[in-house]
Amino acid sequence: MKRARIAWAGAVHDAVEHDGALKLLTPAFRGRVVAFDEVVWLPPLVPTLRARTILALGLNYADHAKELEFKPPVEPLAFLKGEASLIGHRAFTVRPDGVQYMHYECELAVVIGRETRRVKKADALDFVAGYTVANDYAIRDYLENWYRPNLRVKNRDTCTPIGPWLVDAADVPDPMNLALRTTVNGKVTQQGHTRDMIFDVPTLIEYFSAFMTLMPGDLILTGTPDGVVDCQPGDVIVTEIDGIGALVNTIAEEQRAPDPDSGQ
């Protein structure tokens, strides 16, 4: 099942995909069908699956590590992100004024379904609620260390679109057998496959749960393959994973508040 969370008619609703449209699950509107372009798409996390911790992986594809002239890591290279960085499908991501290089990262995002502590790799997928697509933008101008990106690189408001769907884990038999691709203004710029992860999904869940408790709704962003390019205001970026969905995002210019001393 493909689940979504949307804003429509002045309220927030849970919905499911239904014949190329959205069927609402909100009791007062249950069964009402609305078109994709009638709604505002939100990160597809229901209240019981709200992201408390967002774990993101660096250099988890060997080809991307090579692209950046680094050796593949020998253990997961992880950093934390804040919930305020998340936005939904068809939303806008701000490119700060004056930066020279800002790029997308198409990633499989794992949504934890229940409390997860000291789980073995063989059982790890039993603790997954589902999967979604993430676009984990990076701003290279602010980069100090590829191995531990600082907050301004990876944790900016609007810089982590996710969605459009939360696809139930039962509908994804093998998360390590999914093709990824990115287009910029309709041109394919990135292609990869989850089988090429250095640390696969079960390994990551075992690794993190060995020293921290993962809670329902926590996210693991699993890294990106090679093929990143700079994105400018107005560019439309589509990050897509087979069987999971196509996440559309547009780059916007930074809008600054008027200077109070300027008279404007």
Rank of each mutant, 00 (worst) to 15 (best):
A65N: 06
L77S: 13
K71W: 05
S85F: 04
L77I: 10
K71S: 15
D63N: 07
E69P: 00
H64L: 11
A62S: 12
P73R: 04
P72H: 11
K81N: 03
S85M: 01
I87R: 06
L68V: 09
L80T: 14
E75Y: 01
A84N: 11
P76V: 03
P72A: 13
E75Q: 07
E75K: 04
K81R: 10
A56V: 01
K71T: 14
A62C: 08
E67W: 00
G88C: 09
L59D: 12
P73N: 09
G88Q: 12
L68M: 10
G82A: 11
K81C: 01
A78L: 14
K81V: 01
E69N: 15
H64G: 08
A84P: 00
L86S: 04
F70D: 09
L80M: 14
E83D: 09
L59S: 09
P72N: 11
H64C: 08
K71R: 13
F70C: 10
N60V: 06
L68T: 08
A78H: 06
A62Q: 03
F79T: 15
I87F: 09
S85K: 08
L57S: 10
D63Y: 07
P72Q: 14
K66A: 15
L77N: 10
F79E: 15
P72T: 11
L80P: 00
E69T: 13
E83V: 05
E75H: 05
E75P: 00
G82Q: 06
A84S: 08
E83H: 11
P73K: 04
E69C: 09
L57V: 06
E67F: 05
L77H: 07
E69D: 15
P76G: 12
L80N: 14
P73M: 04
S85I: 02
P73D: 12
A62Y: 07
D63C: 03
G58D: 04
L59E: 07
G82S: 13
P76L: 09
A62I: 03
V74P: 00
A56Y: 00
G88M: 07
L57F: 01
A78V: 07
P76N: 13
K81Y: 01
A65M: 02
F70E: 12
E67K: 07
G88I: 02
G88K: 14
A78C: 11
A65V: 05
D63H: 06
V74S: 13
